[in-house]
Simulated assay, not measured.
Amino acid sequence: MVSALDRLSYAARQTARVAWYAGHYAAGRRLLKPLPKPDFPIGPMPTRAELTADLRSLFEREWQDIAAGLFAAPALLGPDPAELLRRSALYFRDLPKVDARRHGRINDEPDQDEANAHLPRYYRQNFHFQSGGWLTEESAAIYDTQVEVLFTGAADAMRRRMLRPIADWMKGRRQREVLGLDVGCGTGRLLAFLHSAWPGMRLTGIDLSAPYLEEARRLIGRTARVKLLEATAEALPFDDASLDLVVSSFLLHELPKKIRAEVLAEMARVLKPGGLVAIVDSIQKGDQPTWDGLLDLFPYYFHEPYYAEYANGSIDAWGDAAGLQPVASERAFLARVSAFTKT
């Protein structure tokens, strides 16, 4: 049973988180030079009041699921206060470099490094114009700060909306019999939330970035229930129909069309009949039509070479092409959670 104090504690943590990252956003804007106005049509845009109300709705839905006993209130993840401040400083230190790349449209620095030659070409880029792309220790240290600033402290909450369809699917199942995989696990935040909610699950996270996997190891800690592997999403190192649960967060919009189709097909291949694929990623055009302008502007301000094609597509159609049937869908602020099964 949750108490009034539990609710107050949850609300206080989320409010503090939003205020912290909103402050970063406001301070960061002062360091950035304005870009010229886009020379292409921009769709409708939400007001700040609409975004704020929708963000509150996101937290309220999570709390209602917690109160209903579907999963526990989220654990506090991440560094201690001193480390949090250090990473904040790293984030602000990188902003001028990000801005210089944005104005110079420089996005291929990781491709110039011979140490990255073994990685797919689509991956060797300065995504978000960030230093190192996704391929350095510095990048791994500031990625979560960067994403939370972008989403005003809501990134983790959007990821956690995936717990709802998983909780529904888990009814009648034993945790210790579930084999799960996080495709493109990055710094491990989704894996950590899954491990906290269902500590008996045996989970594996794969990613192409060794520094991000090291960050995930630090976040999750020592446990035999979670393994981390350097591997590619378009050729998963698992047998056919060998996994019960496959998840990913904010991966698909980073992939070229051909690779994205291969990744979804791989997810379907390794999934057992009756298993679940759960994906959280950006909303697409039409998910919230009055917000479509945000999707037009995002790849203009951030280096996201595959985002426009993603935003104009349909994850349900892509899942169907991979042999997956949709079973649940929810818009979670600026993200969409989609769940599929395989018969």
Rank of each mutant, 00 (worst) to 15 (best):
L181R: 07
L150N: 06
H103L: 15
R105P: 00
R86I: 08
V149K: 08
L135G: 02
H118I: 04
H103M: 10
K171E: 15
M162A: 14
A82H: 08
R93N: 12
L119N: 01
D111I: 00
I142R: 15
N126T: 04
P165T: 06
G172E: 14
D111H: 04
F151E: 08
L95Y: 06
G172P: 10
I106M: 05
Q130C: 09
D99S: 13
N116E: 01
D144R: 04
L119W: 01
P120D: 07
R160H: 02
D144G: 05
R164E: 09
G104Q: 12
R174H: 15
A155G: 03
R174N: 15
Y122R: 04
R101L: 05
R174W: 08
D108T: 05
D156A: 10
G153W: 00
D99T: 09
K97D: 13
H118W: 09
A167D: 05
R102A: 11
L119D: 02
V149G: 00
A141D: 15
R87D: 13
R160F: 00
Y91G: 02
H118S: 14
D156S: 07
D113F: 01
R124D: 05
V147E: 04
F151D: 05
G180A: 12
P81F: 11
R86Y: 13
R105E: 10
K171N: 10
A141W: 06
D94W: 11
R121L: 09
L119G: 01
S139R: 03
T136Q: 02
D94H: 10
L179T: 11
D94Q: 15
Y123H: 05
S139D: 06
L179A: 14
E83L: 09
S139H: 02
Y143A: 11
R121W: 01
D111K: 02
V147Q: 13
S139K: 04
I166M: 10
R176G: 14
V147P: 00
R159Y: 07
D113N: 14
A89D: 11
S139P: 05
R86H: 15
P120Y: 05
Q130F: 02
Y122Q: 06
R159P: 00
Q146A: 14
A167C: 07
I142F: 07
I166V: 15
I106G: 03
K97I: 12
E137M: 03
R124V: 03
L179D: 10
R93F: 12
R174G: 13
G104L: 09
R173G: 04
E83S: 10
L95F: 08
V147N: 06
R173S: 07
R124P: 01
R86Q: 15
D144N: 11
R93T: 14
S139E: 11
D111W: 02
M162F: 01
M170R: 13
D111Y: 01
R87W: 09
A167E: 05
M162T: 12
W134Y: 15
Q175S: 14
E114G: 01
A154D: 00
V98H: 12
Q175W: 09
D113M: 02
R176K: 14
I106Y: 03
A155Q: 08
Y91S: 03
G104A: 15
D168S: 10
N107F: 13
P110S: 07
A117G: 01
D99K: 06
I166T: 04
D168Q: 13
L95G: 06
F129K: 08
L90E: 11
